[in-house]
Measured scan of single mutants.
Amino acid sequence: SKGEELFTGVVPILVELDGDVNGHKFSVSGEGEGDATYGKLTLKFICTTGKLPVPWPTLVTTLSYGVQCFSRYPDHMKQHDFFKSAMPEGYVQERTIFFKDDGNYKTRAEVKFEGDTLVNRIELKGIDFKEDGNILGHKLEYNYNSHNVYIMADKQKNGIKVNFKIRHNIEDGSVQLADHYQQNTPIGDGPVLLPDNHYLSTQSALSKDPNEKRDHMVLLEFVTAAGITHGMDELYK
């Protein structure tokens, strides 16, 4: 796709999030870079409003799984890469995230190029959380598991539907599940690639910047598309 050509090198990323969870309002600002050749993201996020009212790991899918245009699609799968094909005009990404036995996040993001920078601007609203639950009670460990993110075409809306389940580790050794339902639709009216069913395999590492006084998260992530085999004719070339 034409959009794919915008991702040949390292691309700067800007992320802006405004959130409200159970009436606790907050903002997060992030910057870093993405390299789609390797499916690599390096980002640093800062809570610009003081202390973040929710655990950082609960925002990873909104912040970095928010820029799935940096996923590495192998050559034989490039015609299934909706995310890059929607660029530079970008796409709207909407999600509902259900935390098992707790509340939910609803998010709406616009992901697009502004100049040479890929920008992810998000509004997040969280409701029905227990004040002493795993999320508002800050009981999650500061780490992140690997996940597969399942993608299918949504021809009606000229976009994709995505769903997956995140496993958050809790300090007591148990797990907090979070079910994600995602819809992506193009902002522009140019042609986009509608994929066959496949998935993104994601690995994320969270860390801290020892010199950063503000509440923050440093993230390194690798994302690769998989799940579609080479056609038989490919094998015999």
Score class of each variant (00 low, 15 high):
D20A: 09
A86T: 12
E123G: 04
S204P: 02
K161M: 12
Q183R: 14
D18V: 14
V21E: 00
K139Q: 09
I187V: 14
N211Y: 11
H147L: 03
H168R: 01
V162A: 15
L6V: 06
C69Y: 03
A36T: 10
D189V: 07
T8A: 12
D196N: 12
L206M: 10
A226D: 10
S85T: 05
S29Y: 14
K130M: 09
E4D: 09
P195L: 04
I170F: 05
L136P: 01
I122V: 10
Y38N: 15
V10L: 05
E94A: 07
V10E: 04
K155E: 13
K157M: 12
V15A: 02
L43P: 00
Y144N: 07
V54E: 01
Y181H: 07
G231R: 10
G32R: 00
A86P: 04
A178T: 07
H76L: 09
S71R: 00
H80D: 06
H76Q: 05
P53A: 02
K51E: 11
D233G: 11
S146C: 06
R121L: 05
N120D: 02
R108H: 05
T62N: 01
F129V: 04
H168L: 08
D116A: 14
L52P: 02
F164C: 15
H230L: 09
E123A: 08
P55S: 10
S85F: 07
E114K: 11
P12L: 03
I122F: 00
L200P: 01
S201T: 10
R214H: 06
G126S: 02
M87T: 03
P88S: 05
Q203R: 11
H76P: 05
N184S: 06
H138Y: 07
E114V: 10
P57S: 11
N197D: 15
K84R: 02
E110G: 04
D179A: 05
Y150C: 07
L177P: 07
S71I: 06
A36S: 07
V223A: 04
T49I: 02
S27N: 08
S174G: 14
H230Y: 15
D20V: 10
F98V: 11
K100T: 10
F222S: 08
K106A: 10
E89K: 04
F45V: 08
G227V: 09
D128E: 09
N163S: 08
E171G: 12
K139E: 07
I127A: 15
I166N: 04
N143T: 12
S146R: 12
F129Y: 03
Y105H: 01
D101Y: 05
H76Y: 13
M217R: 01
S27T: 13
A86S: 10
H216P: 00
F26S: 01
T61A: 14
Y199D: 02
M232L: 10
E171V: 07
G173C: 04
R108S: 04
C47R: 01
V67E: 05
G190S: 08
I187A: 14
K125R: 10
T48S: 06
K165R: 12
F83S: 02
I187N: 11
K213R: 13
V54A: 01
F7V: 03
M77L: 09
N158K: 13
D35G: 02
S29T: 15
I228V: 10
D179H: 09
Y150S: 05
K157V: 15
D101A: 06
M87R: 01
V223G: 02
L206Q: 02
I160L: 10
K40E: 04
M87V: 03
K44M: 03
S204A: 09
T42S: 15
H216L: 00
L17R: 00
R214S: 03
H198P: 00
H180N: 04
Y181C: 11
E16A: 07
D172A: 06
D81V: 00
D196Y: 05
N145H: 12
G66D: 00
S71C: 13
I166T: 11
T8I: 10
E171A: 08
I135T: 05
F82L: 02
T42I: 13
I170S: 15
G227E: 07
T96S: 10
Y150D: 07
K112M: 04
T224I: 06
Y142C: 07
K78T: 09
I97F: 00
R108P: 00
G9W: 02
N184Y: 01
T202S: 03
K51N: 09
T61I: 00
E234D: 04
K157R: 14
L140P: 02
S201C: 15
N148Y: 07
N148I: 06
G50S: 02
C47S: 06
H76N: 12
I187S: 06
K106T: 08
K25Q: 13
L14P: 00
A36D: 03
E89D: 11
Y199F: 13
I228D: 10
H76C: 08
Y73F: 03
L63M: 09
I127F: 14
Y38H: 14
A178V: 10
L194M: 14
A109G: 11
G115D: 08
F82S: 01
